[in-house]
Design a protein around this nucleic acid. Structure first.
Lengths: 227, 227
DNA sequence: GCCAGAATCTGACGGTGTGTCAGACATTGT
DNA sequence: ACAATGTCTGACACACCGTCAGATTCTGGC
């Protein structure tokens, strides 16, 4: 537990935070950084992405633009951190798939649980997720990585369920489990993202849930769900 | 065909184009406007949306920023026009659904056709579509309207197929046809949007097509597709 | 308590983009 | 040839960006 290498100056990195000038921020610094992150998030939810300005974030945080640049090279970088935090929190979605039962008669309930979790998660991270999607589409590798990390675990978990169904002969062997799972995750993600769009369109959320869960349940187990 | 109301000055509107100063542009004007639109599109595909600047569009079009503002209040407005043009072209997707056969043994082929059309369409309008998605998420009603118009026709067409399947007793009556169709369209749209993301992830496009079509085919007809 | 030195913040500045004029320039009909 | 009308742009005031050098605040050692 004590310092193991007194001679060589160990740049103990791992998750070392660095300010613009290369220094490791102390307590106060990290607090300001957090404040800036929070305000970035707030701006992101209340303003069009195009119009999120460093100067506004700084004003909101009760500091100056120069301070912002002390901790982040630009708005995108701050958003990236927010996205990483979000992806962290998304890991629990995976558990619903691996812990839940996909047996006949129970699959639909598990699917519904997954759908609900998706809807809640997407709703509470809307503003960051839409930037992640945009940046990914625009070919930004950093955001793409986060997006993949978030969805990959969920997809592989679902793919494993598909593989089981294939063994049981309920889903054709010609199906690629990852493709099947990926398509379902895409459906979940996009529906969740445009949730309120559907409502506005005259579709009740309860009906939406039902249809989403139905597609997931069948797509993953090959079992036709009960009404 | 001749002027019918010589006394009252008829503001013949309908689809009257207006410049910033309220005048109706002539030939040269409309040409410049088109040139600006084309350059906006080009910028949109080659640059992050945040970084598309009026000055760049103008430079590219060989004109000055002031000219841009003659025809559009801002970059978003120009994008809106591009989005409208795109939505127009999307109408043909609807035909695939209404003209195709969803009978047993043929549904999968129709579904595949639909999937392919989606993939092609999304690919050739990627840059505009991602802005439409972003702006819609951000609550911009104008983009939302376009998005709905594009997807609504497709969704109602699919919903009609679902309704038939319900009559035939292959899909439970408790399902809301629009919800079922909406979920499938969401899947198609999102998968198409992140097409190359899947490839990068090790999934072959052929397998993706297959899984997409499978979900559509079953979700819409209730018939389990053949391998 | 005081102070040196480290950590943190900011005012001020040159650079670039925005959005708006008034007026220069082009085109057209007579 | 010369209005009248349509089209474009230079110039400007304003806002934000991103970067310093130096002011301000904190901290540990005495």
């Amino acid at each position: 537990m004590s310092e193991p290498t007194p001679l060589r100056r160990v740049e103990d990195h791992s998750e070392e935070l660095r300010a613009a000038d290369g220094r490791v921020p102390g307590l106060r610094g990290r607090a300001t950084r957090q404040r800036l992150l929070a305000c970035t998030l707030e701006m992101l939810t209340s303003t069009s992405y195009r119009d999120v300005k460093v100067i506004d974030i700084a004003r909101e945080a009760g500091t100056s633009p120069a301070t912002f640049y002390q901790y982040f090279p630009d708005v995108e970088a701050a958003t990236l951190v927010l996205a990483e935090e979000m992806a962290q929190q998304g890991q629990h979605l995976r558990l619903i798939i691996t812990e839940g039962s996909w047996l006949e008669g129970e699959a639909m309930a598990t699917a519904l649980e997954l759908v609900d979790a998706f809807l809640v998660f997407w709703d509470s991270h809307r503003s960051v997720l839409r930037v992640v999607d945009l940046a990914t589409d625009e070919g930004d590798g950093r955001f793409q990585k986060i997006r993949v990390r978030l969805l990959n675990d969920i997809t592989t978990a679902l793919a494993e369920v598909v593989r089981q169904a294939q063994k049981a002969g309920r889903i054709p062997k010609t199906i690629d489990p990852m493709a099947a799972a990926g398509v379902l995750v895409a459906m979940l993600a996009h529906t969740a993202a445009h949730q309120y769009g559907f409502e506005f369109w005259g579709i009740r959320t309860a009906k939406l849930r039902q249809s989403m869960a139905r597609q997931v349940s069948w797509g993953v187990t090959g079992i036709i769900p009960p009404d």
